[in-house]
Simulated assay, not measured.
Amino acid sequence: MSKKWLTLLAAILFSLSVILSGCGAKQTSTANLLRVGSDTTYAPFGFQDEKSREYVGFDIDLIKAIGKQLGYEVEIQSMNFDGLIPALEGGTIDVAISDMTITAERSQKVNFSQPYYTAGLSIVAKADNKTITGFKDLEGKRLGVSIGSTGAEEAHKIKDATISEFNSITDAFLELKNGGVDAVINDAPVNEYYVINKGNKDAKIVGEPINSEDLGIATSKKNPELTAKIDNALSELKKNGEYEKIYLKWFGKKPPQ
């Protein structure tokens, strides 16, 4: 082989090594990326800040803290609540965190972390409504819920109720304001945040929460190792005080012991 061909071959091999090393760097970066799906209409768990346009909230801060603990870069993808589990099953996201109740039905499709918050379903009615004082008064009423939620499941149990299922809970609240539904059934912390910050002139909380529901961080059944990592990180955040700090920021009180 001539000297000219040896020089050309060396140049080709060098170019290939650069390309391959670049690919390797890209794969490493992807491996350290945590793709997180969240329905960002569930304030104070996840929502878009009106000024910064950034996604903020308890869930957002918590998953970012977990990502930092694990050495992951966190990428938030906003999507409808009922699309979160299909996205996990399809592999387009790695994690779903969105005020998601741990249920037996959902646990057949995804893995859940240890509970990170305990919520319960409550009712929002119009401020001038005097006929609805609790769940016992919802029979035959027009009810607004978020599609795929436990609030929707509960609403369908109520006799003669007319159920309107919305892609986002904010749409359900808007329908209540406009008089299209008589009440909204949803997780109590989200209802409370809405009434205090958005609908205090138009809406009110009625009755007491009817149940207690544990929220969990969902991951794919194909990735049990990630579930274990998230559990470990969550336990560490509870030990070092970071979880309490985030909880105080969004709920104004310390988490229950």
Score class of each variant (00 low, 15 high):
Phe251Ala: 08
Leu88Cys: 12
Glu192Val: 15
Ala233Asp: 05
Ser122Lys: 00
Lys198Asn: 09
Gly37Arg: 05
Lys141Leu: 12
Glu165Phe: 11
Ile147Gln: 10
Thr170Lys: 12
Tyr194Arg: 02
Leu226Ala: 03
Leu9Ser: 14
Val181Gln: 14
Gly67Tyr: 06
Ile132Glu: 05
Asp94Ile: 07
Asn200Asp: 04
Lys64Tyr: 03
Ile60Ala: 01
Val190Asn: 00
Ser168Ala: 13
Tyr194Phe: 14
Ser149Trp: 04
Met100Lys: 01
Lys51Met: 10
Pro86Ser: 04
Thr170Phe: 07
Ser107Glu: 15
Pro209Arg: 03
Glu139Cys: 03
Leu62His: 08
Asn223Met: 03
Glu75Asn: 11
Asn167Trp: 05
Glu54Gly: 05
Gly179Met: 05
Lys249Ala: 07
Ser113Gln: 09
Ile85Thr: 12
Gln27Met: 11
Leu143Ala: 08
Leu62Pro: 05
Lys157Val: 02
Met79Phe: 08
Tyr55Val: 10
Ala172Cys: 13
Thr219Val: 04
Gly37Lys: 10
Leu176Tyr: 09
Glu139Val: 15
Leu248Trp: 01
Arg35Cys: 00
Gly179His: 11
Asp182Lys: 03
Gly241Thr: 08
Glu175Lys: 09
Leu33Val: 09
Leu237Ala: 08
Val95Ala: 07
Asn32Ser: 15
Ser15Met: 12
Ile63Asn: 14
Lys177Glu: 14
Thr101Ala: 05
Val74Trp: 01
Ala43Glu: 13
Tyr72Pro: 06
Gly241Phe: 04
Met1Leu: 14
Ser21Ile: 13
Pro255Ile: 06
Gly120Pro: 10
Lys198Met: 08
Pro44Gly: 03
Asp202Trp: 01
Met1Arg: 08
Gly179Thr: 09
Ile217Asp: 11
Ser38Cys: 12
Val195Ala: 04
Asp99Cys: 14
Ile123Cys: 04
